[in-house]
């Protein structure tokens, strides 16, 4: 038997989505504009896109670039952030560098990268990599900095070498913070993925979206936005599952559901 409160809590995200679609439907029927198709038209266009082999290859190519860019960024950023957090010399070297790069929109670097590396996979993956790296470095750095000195001393007394301390104490102790950075990084990966395909129009989900816009196929444009949004929600939900499993030992910070998982 589910209590009414639990029922509301469970169905709330679904109800919110249905509500949004309903407002959209009413608004578009009222406005009667070509560039604002009804929600039903947009939703009806989704199977067409997903059923089309060409589109599917494009979307999968986007996801592949995103996965590669995100993966490499995480693998390089976590060790760098942890080292910066524990070594004054390393942070003194990298901090000013990152401070300069941090506020620059990574998509703004694309024209230069395109000049060097062309409009292919490497350029787009590199931009995704840059977008993901900074939040992951920053959060790893903050997490490593906050690790209690006495915890490291306890490890050292058991005979852990400085490198072992970094891998076996700093890494797990900073994990909640690191994963917060990764979650931000994941959303940024999706954003930079679409943006990179907007700028270097060759393939990908962003390319489908903007081609449809050029050709005035507005229901496809809206359908693509829904698909990209759904991709974001699914990726985030899967990541949240993994994250909560990994850091169950740490203090629960919020009682509110922060994702749709």
């Amino acid at each position: 038997m589910i209590s009414p409160a639990a029922l509301v809590k469970r169905t709330a995200p679904v109800l919110a989505c249905i509500g949004l679609l309903a407002i959209w439907q009413v608004a578009s029927l009222g406005l009667k504009s070509d560039s604002f198709p009804t929600a039903t038209d947009a939703v009806r266009a989704i199977p067409d896109i997903l059923g089309d082999k060409e589109s599917l290859i494009n979307i999968l190519a986007s996801l592949r670039r995103m996965a590669v860019g995100f993966g490499i960024a995480v693998l390089l950023s976590i060790p760098l952030g942890l080292l910066m957090g524990r070594s004054r010399a390393v942070s003194a070297f990298f901090n000013p560098l990152l401070m300069v790069i941090y506020p620059v929109p990574k998509a703004a670097l694309m024209p230069i990268i395109m000049l060097w590396l062309g409009v292919g996979d490497i350029t787009k993956t590199l931009v995704i990599f840059l977008g993901v790296s900074l939040p992951v470095i920053y959060h790893s750095f903050e997490g490593a900095k906050a690790v209690e000195e006495k915890m490291l001393w306890s490890g050292a007394a058991m005979g852990l070498s400085p490198l072992q301390c970094l891998v076996r104490i700093v890494l797990p102790a900073a994990l909640p913070e690191i994963l917060t950075g990764c979650r931000t990084g994941l959303v940024l990966a999706l954003i930079t993925m679409i943006t990179s395909e907007m700028i270097a129009r060759q393939s990908g989900a962003g390319n489908i979206l903007f081609n449809a816009l050029d050709m005035g196929q507005y229901d496809t444009v809206y359908a693509m936005i829904i698909i990209v949004g759904a991709m974001g929600i699914c990726l985030d939900a899967v990541f949240e599952r993994v994250r909560t499993r990994l850091v169950r030992w740490s203090e629960p910070q919020f009682d509110m559901p922060l994702s749709f998982s």
């Binding site: 050292a156 007394a157 030992w249 740490s250």
Partner: peptide, 28 residues
């Protein structure tokens, strides 16, 4: 430097929060 012949116990406990009680005690 530190070594296992001298075992510290700190006011701040400094336990490994990602390990259970058993995991903490078994660590050394």
């Amino acid at each position: 430097g530190p070594g296992p012949d001298r075992g510290p116990v700190f006011q701040e406990f400094a336990l490994f929060p990602w390990k259970t009680v058993l995991g903490n005690v078994m660590y050394g």
